[in-house]
């Protein structure tokens, strides 16, 4: 029996009167690659933001490895405005900041690349080591943590080696070609040593060759690092090739779930999402 890594339970995210995510239920199991697809504006990134603590959901809960990490219920003016379901079954508030979620072992990448622009590839990776520091402000300032500092650098270098970015180690992150920037962003997320990786459109803006490379790359890091991957993607080739299961979201509502073949043949999905481009 595979363990439940991520469980999104009855999550509704309402901004004012607009429901961005409507009663979403998602389960991601150990070592699976699960994709979340849907037309633009379907609420995919909002779902990610709820999982990673950027937004507190209006209602619902998120579990990570059986432990509740996020929970909320409609309060204040949302009490009146709330239009979603399952009102009243959640009673407490748990809304950690994104850094706490990362410390639990959930790392993410962003739809529009967010690298540390003024820093080199190596420094981008090295920053992730900060969260495992044992030194405090004083020991770090007086460089009394040489051993730790050395380990941090070695670990960052090792990761660069494994992810084949060593050759651009000292280049500025923004000087890399687009495909490599995407890969660096994944590498940086990996450097936080997550067990669950959330990828927000990793192949956005990539050409077919770069997409193929990325497909192989994602498959490889899953196998090499024993990761569970939950991703948002628009490139159907990539999604169909790599996913173990797929969730389809439309207007904030999950409309289908299943293995790639089921999704490809699901009439509701074809209507809502693939639409005229069913031949893709």
């Amino acid at each position: 029996m595979k363990e439940n890594v991520l469980k999104v339970e009855n999550v509704t995210m309402q901004f004012g009167g607009v429901i961005a995510v409507d009663n979403m239920n998602i389960v991601v199991n150990e070592k699976e690659i699960v994709s979340l697809i849907g037309p633009n504006g379907a609420g995919k990134t909002t779902a990610f933001n709820v999982i990673t603590g950027v937004y507190a959901p209006t209602n619902g809960a998120v579990y990570f490895r059986g432990k509740k990490i996020v929970e909320n219920y409609p309060q204040g003016k949302m009490k009146k405005l709330y239009k979603g379901e399952n009102n009243g079954i959640y009673k407490s508030v748990l809304s950690p900041t994104p850094d706490k979620i990362t410390k639990l072992g959930i790392a993410r990448t962003f739809q529009n690349i967010r690298l540390f622009k003024s820093q080199t590839v190596f420094e981008n990776i090295l920053i992730a080591e900060h969260l495992r520091r044992t030194s405090n402000l004083f020991t770090a300032t007086f460089h009394m943590n040489r051993e730790e500092e050395k380990n941090m650098r070695e670990e960052a270098d090792r990761l660069l080696e494994i992810l084949e970015l060593s050759d651009v180690r000292n280049e500025m992150a923004t000087s890399l070609p687009y495909g490599k920037q995407r890969r660096l962003e994944i590498a940086r997320a990996m450097a936080t040593k997550p067990s669950l990786l959330l990828l927000d459109e990793p192949a956005a803006g990539m050409n077919p060759q770069e997409t193929d490379e990325l497909t192989a790359f994602i498959g490889r890091i899953r196998d090499d690092f024993g990761l569970t991957i939950f991703m948002i993607e628009h490139h159907m080739d990539l999604v169909m090739e790599i996913s173990d299961r797929i969730y389809v979201l439309d207007f904030g509502k999950p409309i289908a779930e299943g293995i790639p073949e089921e999704i490809q043949n699901n009439p509701r999905v074809i209507e809502a999402y693939l639409g005229g481009a069913a031949d893709e």
């Binding site: 990362t102 992730a128 969260l131 770090a140 300032t141 940086r188 936080t192």
Partner: peptide
């Protein structure tokens, strides 16, 4: 010395991109 320590790197990460820095566990 502070700027060159791991805290200094965290500061620079915050300067470059707050949202990404937070996602990196800072």
């Amino acid at each position: 010395l502070l700027i060159n320590s791991t805290y200094g790197r965290a500061f620079k990460a915050i300067r470059d991109d707050e949202i990404a820095a937070e996602a990196m566990g800072i």
